[in-house]
Amino acid sequence: MPHDPDHTEPPSDPALRAKALETILTEKGLIDPAALDALIDTYETRIGPRNGAKVVAKAWTEPDFLDWLRTDATAAIESLGFGGRQGEHMRVVENTEVIHNIVVCTLCSCYPWPVLGLPPVWYKSPPYRSRAVSDPRSVLAEFGTELPAETEIRVWDSTAEMRYLVLPKRPAGTEGWSAEQLKPLVTRNAMIGVEEAARPA
């Protein structure tokens, strides 16, 4: 790409506005750019779906922890060190042989960041937000998830007050597996509910 050496190509309008807002807020002492960088780094590298996978694998292998998740998911999840912003008011919804849960936020894409990281692009897209509610089965089909016709699909609409984590069914053929062995089977999409947990290879 040729560059005009006399100037630097300005970024896009929203990028300039974000930069401007940061400048103003920094000057007023309301934010600290170094703290912003640290925050971004945290969300990008230290939290993410692996946290949620740990929660699920523990629930699959420890009945006491599963009970705790059912009665007070926020506290149970926090006991593993996964708390904070958007991690309050967690509820775990459990898939069974007859019930399949799927999570959506129809308004703004609330998402349990501490256990799943930041939401994937498609989760925030208007088609997902509307169709997960109006026609969840077609959304599942697009993810390659085919459920028996008699399976009840429950759609959970997250809010600022309540965020959901799907507890997928433990895959067949994993009897006797440790939590460590099970963790890689727990995908982010399974914890949103658009897929089932991966099957053992």
Binding site: P14, K19, I31, L36
Partner: peptide
């Protein structure tokens, strides 16, 4: 998650 740096910047400002 952030396709551009300003996405991350805007995100972090709200949280902060």
């Amino acid at each position: 998650v952030f396709a551009e740096p300003w996405h991350a910047q805007a995100f972090a400002m709200a949280v902060s």
